[in-house]
Design a protein around this nucleic acid. Structure first.
Length: 631
DNA sequence: TTTAGGG
DNA sequence: CCCTAAA
């Protein structure tokens, strides 16, 4: 990133400063730049960008709002009586104000910066402000722009144009309303200077702001901040211009001389540019935006990046600036309502994900639900946070997936957002508890894949599949355990059942297997043969080939069959079953149901008989579709 | 472990 | 299907 000392690297140079003709394109791009030690502005590095993250954590929510960057400036200039030699070392009132400002600004920086940062980071050429050019041209409306434009200004222009279209009116209004009441000037509005191309040359050479007319000051303002203003208050304009050029709020209200975009102090004696101070201090690394620079004094803190400049947002987020209800000369009024309703996009940091989860819960439920009473759905919403915390505390690397949060692509722990049914066990934690199994995980994975593939062909044999010995040694038990968990884990993915947070770790739920007619028949035969309640026996003898059916399963199924006979068999007449018959559910043939009923009645009445009973109806034709019971 | 029963 | 108590 070299500093462009020539002012030739301009885009839209030809379009230059034709203010009257330029109506739409705004060559001023929003770029993050960093104040170098020598006072030049260079594009922000990725590190600078990352340092923004600090703001996300120190954010205070209840701070008053700032309507516009102008207010910020006014906030400082009007309310912060600062010692002449204050600078950044004075930690007292100024630092306090700065801190407040930092917090407020940080709240909105997140939203604006991301896109800007993306742009600045991704764009091949970066905007920078050239300094120290010879004052070859002085205040000529045809002068060269001294702010380099992005090479991709054409693409950037789209955004900028939209911004202008959507926001210029409001800005204009705001600026108009911001005129000081004591301003008796009746000068025509500077609407004539409506060009989207600010005349940066207005500030070239050596100019005493006091000598400028209001219009020229407005132009200088525009050159400084990249937007026009209709404010006709000379002092206001001068101060803002000065502040903008010096990146300082500590400026004299008059007597400033602008020399090549730098403010030379009154009578050109002292240079009050904070840039110089900053560079001398050598400890302030400021990220800024060329356009609409917000004076952002360096924080005395240890963090070299504790201060940033804020640009007006492309979406007019300046309206959402939290602002202090202090004296200001720019309107805020009706915008307050809007900022209340507007929800800021927020960079999805870890903490953000946490908070987002909470917010989602709060929003979805309206009220804070106690942790103990969260519904499954709410738990799901909480999951990302938990995953992160677990990942941190356990040092475990969790699989992540790309997700979109606040419009930005981020990686989040790979958990399903929705789940049905009960949670699955935490396979990873299980593995962590069984380190001896880890070396076999890969094998298990392979095996599991094969199993799942097999399941795809033969849906009912997955359990059998992973009961096949995977190894010949004693690890088999572990392998099976892991395999079972893994299968369930994968199944949950396949079937869309996500994990449950913490409480039920180590628990699993086996995949639901619909009972086939064959199984039911075997069950009924088994009951008839060995008696009701002999589930273990039935399982061993009749379900030898259905190893995934446990005796409990048999018992449960039998119970369900009993219920079916009681609830669905009697009303055979079915005057009009309002229930839709799901074609995917195979009804249990009434003949089987009848057998179940008889067996049940026999068992319940005459006590347990274990003798095999032959039922004449066993061979009777199976009539389907009567809908008395389902598998 | 198995069974029974509630969830 | 899960969970648990009671055999």
């Amino acid at each position: 990133m070299e500093v462009d000392d020539s002012h030739g690297a301009l885009v839209n140079k030809s379009e230059g400063n034709d203010f009257e003709n330029k109506g739409s394109s705004d060559p001023v791009v929003y770029q993050l730049v960093r104040v170098e030690g020598d006072g030049t502005l260079v594009p922000a590095t990725e590190d600078d960008v990352l340092q923004f993250e600090h703001f996300l954590h120190g954010e205070k929510v209840d701070l008053p709002s700032i309507e516009d960057v102008g207010h910020v400036e006014e906030f400082f200039s009007n309310d912060c009586i600062l010692p002449e030699k204050s600078d950044l070392e004075d930690g007292s009132s100024k630092s306090k104000s700065i801190e407040i400002y930092t917090q407020k600004l940080g709240a909105d920086i997140e939203e604006n910066r991301i896109q800007s940062l993306d742009d600045s980071l991704s764009s091949p050429s970066r905007c920078r402000v050239a300094h120290g050019q010879p004052p070859d041209k002085v205040i000529t409306e045809q002068g060269d722009n001294n702010i380099t434009q992005q090479d991709n200004a054409s693409t950037e222009t789209t955004k900028s144009t939209v911004l202008n279209d959507s926001c210029s009116a409001e800005k204009e209004k705001a600026d108009a309303c911001s005129r000081p009441v004591d301003d008796t000037s009746t000068e025509p509005s500077v609407s004539g200077v409506n060009s989207s191309v600010p005349d940066f040359s207005i500030l070239r050479g050596e100019v005493c702001l006091d000598d400028l007319t209001i219009r020229e000051l407005q132009e200088a303002f525009r050159a400084t901040f990249g937007r026009q203003t209709t404010v006709k208050d000379k002092i206001w304009l001068k101060r803002r211009i000065t502040m903008g050029l010096t990146n300082s709020y500590d400026v004299p209200s008059s007597g400033c001389v602008v020399k090549d975009y730098k403010i030379v102090g009154k009578d050109a004696k002292q240079e009050i540019s904070n840039i110089g101070e900053i560079s001398k201090a050598g400890r302030l690394q400021t990220t800024t935006l060329v356009r609409d620079q917000v004076i952002y004094p360096g924080n005395e803190g240890d963090s070299p990046s504790s201060s940033y400049y804020q640009s007006e947002d492309q979406q007019g987020s300046s309206k959402r600036f939290k602002r202090v209800p202090i004296h200001n000369d720019e309107p805020q009024g009706s915008l307050l309502a809007e900022q209340c309703t507007n929800k800021r996009a927020r960079k999805p940091t870890k903490r953000y994900i946490e908070e987002l989860s909470d917010i989602e819960i709060h929003d979805s439920t309206g009220k804070l639900s106690s942790p103990a009473k969260r519904t499954a759905h709410e738990e799901v919403l909480l999951k990302p946070r938990i995953s992160f915390h677990e990942a941190e505390s356990l040092g475990t690397i969790y699989p992540t997936r790309k997700d979109t949060l606040g419009g930005f692509s981020v990686h989040v722990p790979y958990v399903s957002r929705m789940r049905r049914g009960r949670p699955r066990k935490d396979f990873i934690s299980f593995v962590d508890k069984e380190p001896s199994v880890k070396p076999n995980i890969n094998r298990v994975h392979t095996a599991i894949r094969m199993m799942l593939a097999e399941e795809g062909e033969e849906g009912n044999h997955i359990r059998k599949a992973y009961e096949v010995p995977l190894t010949v040694n004693s690890e088999r038990v572990h392998i099976e355990a892991v395999a079972r968990k893994e299968v369930q884990n994968l199944q949950t993915k396949v079937y869309g059942a996500p994990a449950k947070p913490k409480a039920k770790q180590g628990l699993t739920r086996k995949h639901h297997r619909a009972w086939t007619l064959c199984e039911v028949v075997k069950l009924v035969d088994g009951v008839a043969q060995y008696g009701v309640g002999k589930w273990s026996e039935i399982r061993k003898l009749s379900f030898a080939s259905y190893s995934y059916r446990t005796s409990v399963d048999l018992k449960d199924k039998w119970r369900n069959l009993i219920r079916a006979t009681q609830t669905q068999l009697p009303p055979q007449k079915d005057g009009g079953c309002p229930r839709k018959i799901n074609p995917s559910i195979i009804p249990i043939p009434p003949s089987i149901l009848l057998r179940v009923k008889e067996l049940h009645e026999l068992q319940s009445q005459g006590g347990g008989f274990t003798a095999p009973v032959k039922f004449p109806g066993q061979n009777s034709k199976v009539v389907q579709g009567k809908g008395s019971g389902f598998l």
